[in-house]
Amino acid sequence: MDRPSISQIQDAFAEPLEAFVRESNVRLAVLINRAGQVLAQYGFDKVFDLVGVASLAAGINASSRALANQLGEERFEHLHHAGPARQLFLGHFESAAGQLMLVTVFDQRSSIGLVRLFFERFVSQLRQLPSMDASRSAVSGTDFEAELETSLDRFFQDLVSG
């Protein structure tokens, strides 16, 4: 059977992520794929640059995997970086949609032990999700492609004349 695409299952990520944030008492959490694209997030606002965090975390994860491979390990354990006020946890796991990563930021109200405990619970919840939502109706990509030229013209015209 074909592996479901992330697009097909990502709507279901939001609720388990909220539960993880509530139970582990972390401040921020974002679920990303290996390319650093955001699938779900909780707690990010204008103070923190969500896509910047996601791209850097994907970079750390990718280089950690590559280092593990070079040293003959399949993968390294989760990553944990601690600063005086905030700590960062990057936990990776396999899902029906390939390798995903949870990036979370916490302070003294939580702890690495708590984060790891509820991370495991989060992963097992995700693994129990139905693999996809087949109830959506669909339109062909034709309309999208028809609008594409006009939208690109508008965007680039704005830039050139701006």
Binding site: D11, A14, L39, S140, F144, E145, L148, E149, L152
Partner: peptide
């Protein structure tokens, strides 16, 4: 590059019209 990427996406994907509930992202 944008055009090439989005044209490929349009050809590859059927774009579903969901109900928007249970938002992720």
């Amino acid at each position: 590059a944008s055009e090439g990427v989005l044209k490929k996406l349009a050809r590859k994907l059927e774009i579903p019209i969901g109900d928007g509930a249970g938002g992720a992202g």
